[in-house]
Amino acid sequence: MPSLKELRNRIASVKATQKITKAMQMVAAAKLRRAQAAAEAARPYAERMGAVLANVAAGVAGQSDAPRLLAGTGANQTHLLIVCTAERGLCGAFNSSIARLAREHTLALQRQGKTVKILCVGKKGYDALRRLFQNEIIELIELRSVKQIGFANADAIARKVLSLYADGQFDVATIFYSKFRSVIQQIPTAQQLIPAQVPTNDNAAPTTAAIYEYEPDEATILEDLLPRNISVQILGALLENVASEMGAKMSAMDNATRNAGEMIKKYTLRYNRTRQAMITKELIEIISGAEAL
């Protein structure tokens, strides 16, 4: 049975923890709002980009001289996995669920005899995958110092991926991130970047695509458009990821705060019981002492 003083200390320490988790939850809520707005603001661009790409790609589809970013290298041997996670922990299963998806993917590919290369964006994913796939991880990109993720960050990553592709380092690139559904639901997602997956808009394409005029010609535009599309997709993934992270953090911290509250209640009850028992004991001692006289 812990003494009264010990119980008092324990209650004080749980209260301090609760204050911290509560503060973290509120910070996450504020950041979530901003992250969600950023993710939503980036959506129109990605949508328009997809539409334009579908239009242009329809023109060159099936041609043998289609750009390699669209047609692929023709091989399917080396896979590059871009694993985007958070820089910080304390956000529930957010990081581990992305890492798990990436791990399963990697193992499945390796069983098929493919070569896997991993590019980590965010430290937590790197920490989780390092032990198993030390030799597969080719680089870690940290975004710790970045306050607000912008196009420049995504572009830097895209450039790295593209230069690897140009060197023939891989055939297929897939990006792993968490899609933001709601505060309590984030969906770990794998999305193929290279070769580009072109959204098909069957209803609109045939009528408009035929009479398009291009300046400069289609191939040049497509060459410019495809790398940019990759930057845009990476940016979208990163922004979704930030929103998911904040959502996961918010609900994790909410749980922690509630847990701490329950613990405080339990300890306070125990503290009062012990205190009352001691008072009763002292009274009995006084009374029986007086009776003995």
Partner: peptide
Amino acid sequence: PGSEGEFEVLKNHAPFMAT
């Protein structure tokens, strides 16, 4: 400011795509 020269777009411009 198109890469091959500036152009102006008005209503009912022909379908056109430029960098």
